[in-house]
């Protein structure tokens, strides 16, 4: 009994030690284990779990920042404090829509990864990336206008929380868009086998979902009055 098991486990060994294991997000890229369904399945599961854990930590990071924001906003007599600008509610609302559509594309792709043809997946991811970029550009333009108005990081807790909280989210979007673009380009160039493709899309899908899902909360808390 136990001998059978040993051999079966031993098959996975080459993967365990076959060269440098991939970092989170890279997916299984070791050519030495391409054919072994069992082992790549395991590293797929490991990567997904690790990503989920990372997102948990990320949520706690935002919880710290959002907690601080809530203390200030709901502890203040006037919010925004007198003399501070109203935040651009309308254009950011539209921008929220853009990000949500982008998230919907991502989730659809992720769900249909085994059904959709390769071309369609690439197309959907390209759209996701472009929408994410649009969101960033609009955000950047807004920031530019706010700074020109004289609203800065140093403008009391209103400015401080706005730029740290929204800035941290923007950094997350920026990182996610770069990663999305990389995956999309590799996909378009056919650089990924099926297993690698599924893993990378699942990972970026999880990350992008979190980044998109956080935004309406931030929009509601920070922009809405």
């Amino acid at each position: 009994m136990s001998d059978v098991f040993t051999e079966e486990r031993a098959n996975t060994l080459v993967q365990d030690y076959g060269g440098t294991p991939p970092p989170i997000g890279a997916g299984p890229s070791d050519p030495g284990n391409g054919g072994r369904q069992d082992s790549s399945g395991k590293s797929h599961a490991n990567a997904i779990l690790a990503m989920a854990l990372f997102l948990g930590a990320d949520v706690m990071f935002f919880a710290g920042l959002i907690g601080a924001f809530v203390v200030f906003r709901f502890g203040a007599l006037h919010w925004p404090p007198p003399g501070q600008p109203l935040l651009p509610l309308g254009i950011t609302g539209i921008n929220t829509g853009i990000l949500l559509i982008s998230g919907a594309f991502m989730v659809k792709t992720w769900q249909n990864i085994d059904r959709w043809p390769h071309k369609k997946i690439t197309k959907a991811l390209t759209l996701t990336t472009l929408l994410g970029m649009t969101f960033l550009l609009v955000q950047g333009y807004e920031w530019f206008r706010l700074v020109a108005f004289g609203f800065k990081l140093t403008s009391g807790t209103f400015g401080g929380t706005f730029y740290t909280l929204i800035g941290c989210h923007a950094l997350h979007v920026m990182g996610a868009v770069l990663w999305l673009a990389t995956v999309t380009v590799r996909l378009a160039r056919n650089r990924l086998d099926q297993q690698q493709r599924n893993t990378s899309i699942a990972l970026i899908g999880m990350y992008w979902t979190l980044v998109v899902a956080l935004w309406p909360i931030l929009y509601g808390l920070v922009y809405w009055n």
């Binding site: 706690m60 990071f61 919880a63 601080a68 990081l153 400015g159 401080g160 740290t164």
Partner: peptide
């Protein structure tokens, strides 16, 4: 630890970037 990281980030901003958290 991420909660500490968030707090430390605010402290660094207070010290270096002039915020008033």
């Amino acid at each position: 630890l991420p909660v500490l990281t968030a707090a430390l980030a605010m402290l660094v901003f207070d010290r270096l970037a002039g915020t008033t958290f």
